[in-house]
Every structure is written in C-alpha cells, then in structure tokens.
C-alpha cells in the first residue's frame, strides 16, 4: 500500500511541516495585502488579455443560463396559455351553443306564435330519452304541476312529435310518433286522402297505411294530421311521402313517410295544453 510506505519512510514529518508552512503563509496572505509578489503580478498580467478575450468571445455562452432561466418562464407561460386557450375554447363553445339554442328557440317561438291563436302552449325541455330500445319516448321537464295531462299533444317547430303517455309531478313521458303504439290519423295535404300514420318500430321512417288502391297520392306530398281519433288536432305537419307501394293484400296502398321532426335531436318542444275559443278536437 502507498499510504503505509509513505508513513514508513518518515516523510510524514516533512508533510506536517509543509502543511504548517502552507497554513502560515495562507494565514498571512489573507484577503487584503499591500503588495503582490512578482510571480502573481506576472501571472495576472499574462492571463488578463486571455481572460478579457475569452470573456468577449464567450459572452454568448452566458446566454446558456439565460436560456435555461427563460425556458422556465416559457414553460410557465405556455402552461398559462394552454389554460387560457382551453378556457376560451370553452367560452366559444358555450357561445356557439347559446347561438344554436337561440336559433332553435326562435323557431319554437314562431311555432308557438302560430299555434297560440288556437291553443295554449307550454314550452318544455327534453331532459331524457327512453333507456330501452323497444320504445321511442322522451322525458320532458314539465309535469302535472305545470298542468300537463295524459294524451296532450307535443310538437316542435318542425311538426308533430308525439303525445304524453305518463306523468309525474315535474316530468312527462312523451311517446314519439316513431313508436308503433303512436298511430295518428292523417291525410295527404294536396289530395286530402285520409289514412293512418304509424311508426315502424325501428328506423326513422313512418308508414302511412290503409288508403285506397286508387288514391291520388304521389311522392314528396306532405302528410298532415287529420284530426280523427280524438287526440291530435287537425293540420299538424307530420312528414312527406318518400315511397308508395301496394299492400300485400293488393287492395290497399301504403307509403313510407319521412317525418319532418328529427327525433334524434329533440331539445325543446311545445305541449298543446288547451284549445282556445271555439276550436275543438273532433
């Protein structure tokens, strides 16, 4: 080993003396000295131009520190901006939503104004849909407390939506026209050909059945409620005919009707609560 050899040779005395000498010198050459030694002056003078040149050339490297410090600031600023962008996006989104809602409500208002001479109407919001696939119904946020009753007719700005089939104090379940149980007496607007419109159980189309083989109906003609059946008032828009075919028995015809109402996007509806004046449901 090196250390024991060092000690063995007795050099430790030299070592201790050297340490003592160095400490003494260091002690006596503290911070403030009156005169530098020749060697120190020479060294400093030799290094001075080198240091000055290096400082000038490498001053750009000082930017490294600034770069990293700036990097931290940038990260913070980026995080702040990301948050701000998210907030603004949310705001834009909610404004868009408000704009769309505004447009829908305007249409609904127009519909309400159209219906108001004959009917008392109550606007309601759709708050839920049927959780099962077997029925087509929606839940609205008005119920018995608002004066709603079973079999009241529900419409929106596009036309007939359905009728109320169940009520709670604050909600009502509306059976949509799409449901097989929601058959409506109807007629073709132009030819006044009567029939019945019913849901097909699945899909988004309705079927108009039971009209005579020789009835004068064509595609794209509008189908309205006929007022027959005691629930739905006459004249409400249902949809338009897209396809006409002969029923399997060969005696009657049936037609496929595309409803005006987009049942997938129902948000606001109007409930026809009470007829006004002399209007009466047949």
């Amino acid at each position: 080993m090196v250390l024991p050899m060092f000690w063995k040779k007795g050099k430790w005395i030299f070592f201790i003396i050297a340490v003592c000498v160095l400490l003494t010198v260091a002690h006596n050459t503290g911070l403030e000295r009156n005169k530098l030694t020749f060697l120190e002056v020479w060294l400093r003078d030799m290094l001075a131009p080198l240091e000055s040149g290096a400082t000038a050339v490498l001053s750009g490297v000082r930017g490294i520190g600034g770069y990293f410090a700036g990097y931290q600031d940038m990260v913070q600023e980026r995080d702040k901006l990301i948050k701000e962008v998210a907030d603004l996006k949310e705001e834009v989104n909610s404004l868009k939503e408000a704009g769309l809602e505004n447009a829908r409500l305007r249409k609904l208002l127009m519909m309400k104004e159209n219906m108001e001479p004959d009917w008392e109407v109550l606007p309601a919001k759709v708050i839920g849909r049927d959780t099962e696939n077997w029925y087509h119904s929606i839940i609205i946020n008005k119920g018995m407390a608002d004066g709603l009753e079973k079999d009241m007719v529900v419409i929106n700005y596009d036309g007939l939506v359905g009728r109320i089939i169940a009520l709670t104090q604050n909600t009502a379940e509306v059976l949509l026209l799409l449901d097989r149980g929601g058959a409506v007496g109807c007629l073709v607007q132009l030819s006044r050909t009567p029939g019945v419109v019913e849901g097909q159980g699945s899909g988004k189309m309705l079927r108009m059945v039971h009209f005579p083989h020789d009835a004068d109906i064509q595609e794209n003609q509008i189908v309205l409620t006929s007022g027959l059946g005691g629930i739905y008032p006459a004249g409400l828009r249902i949809g338009y005919i897209t396809k006409i075919e002969v029923e399997p028995n060969g005696l009657m015809k049936q037609a496929e009707v595309k409803p005006f109402v987009d049942f997938d996007r129902l948000e606001e509806v109007l409930v026809l609560t009470k007829p006004k004046n002399e209007v009466s449901v047949p």
Binding site: L22, V25, A26, T29, L31, R33, L36, E40
Partner: peptide
Amino acid sequence: LVEDLVTGKFIGIHIL
C-alpha cells in the same frame, strides 16, 4: 500554486 497566485489570497490554501 498557480490558483493561489492567480487568486492572490490566502496563498497556500489551494496548494494544500
């Protein structure tokens, strides 16, 4: 030694 001479303070401390 060089460092001590350059710094010019407490000469010997860097040597040690």
